[in-house]
Computed example of a mutant assay.
Amino acid sequence: MKKEGICRICGNYGKLTFEHVPPQSAFNSKPVLFQKSVHIHDKNSYLYGKKIRSNQGAGGYYLCKSCNNLTGSYYGDSYKKFAYKGMMALTNRVWASRVITFEYAIQPLNVLKQILSMFMAIDTSDQLLHLEGLSSFLLNKDSQTFPKNLRVFIYHTSTKQVRNGWGMARTSKGYHYLGEITYPPFGLVYSLDSEPTRDDFFEITDFKNYKFNQTVQGRLSIPFLTPKTYIPGLYN
Rank of each mutant, 00 (worst) to 15 (best):
I231M: 12
M87Y: 15
Y75M: 09
F202K: 13
T17E: 00
D199I: 02
T17F: 06
N149E: 01
M118K: 11
D123R: 12
Y62H: 04
D200G: 05
L47F: 10
V21I: 15
M88Y: 11
Y183L: 03
N69R: 15
K2D: 00
Y230V: 08
S45W: 09
P23E: 08
F102A: 15
N55V: 06
D77T: 15
S45P: 02
G57I: 03
P232L: 13
F82K: 07
N69Q: 10
T182D: 04
K148P: 02
P196G: 04
H156M: 14
G167L: 08
M120F: 00
N164G: 01
A169M: 14
G165N: 07
Y62A: 00
D199W: 05
N28V: 10
N213E: 06
L234P: 01
G218F: 07
T71P: 06
P223M: 10
R219H: 07
E132F: 12
M88K: 12
H176R: 13
R98L: 11
Y61V: 06
G60C: 05
L139A: 02
K141G: 04
F153W: 10
E19C: 00
F153S: 03
E132N: 13
M88I: 02
R163P: 02
P232Y: 14
S191E: 01
G167D: 04
I204A: 04
D123W: 15
A89K: 13
P31G: 06
T226Y: 04
S97Y: 14
P232Q: 08
S66R: 14
W166M: 09
M168C: 08
G165A: 15
G14F: 03
L16G: 02
H130A: 09
G72K: 14
T182P: 03
F186T: 05
Q127D: 00
P185G: 09
L116C: 01
P185V: 06
V94N: 03
S158P: 01
I181N: 06
K51P: 00
P196D: 05
P232R: 11
C7T: 00
F202R: 09
Q114D: 01
T197M: 13
K36Q: 10
P223T: 05
A89H: 08
K43N: 09
N209W: 01
R93P: 07
T145D: 01
I106L: 14
F186M: 07
F102K: 13
H41E: 15
F82C: 14
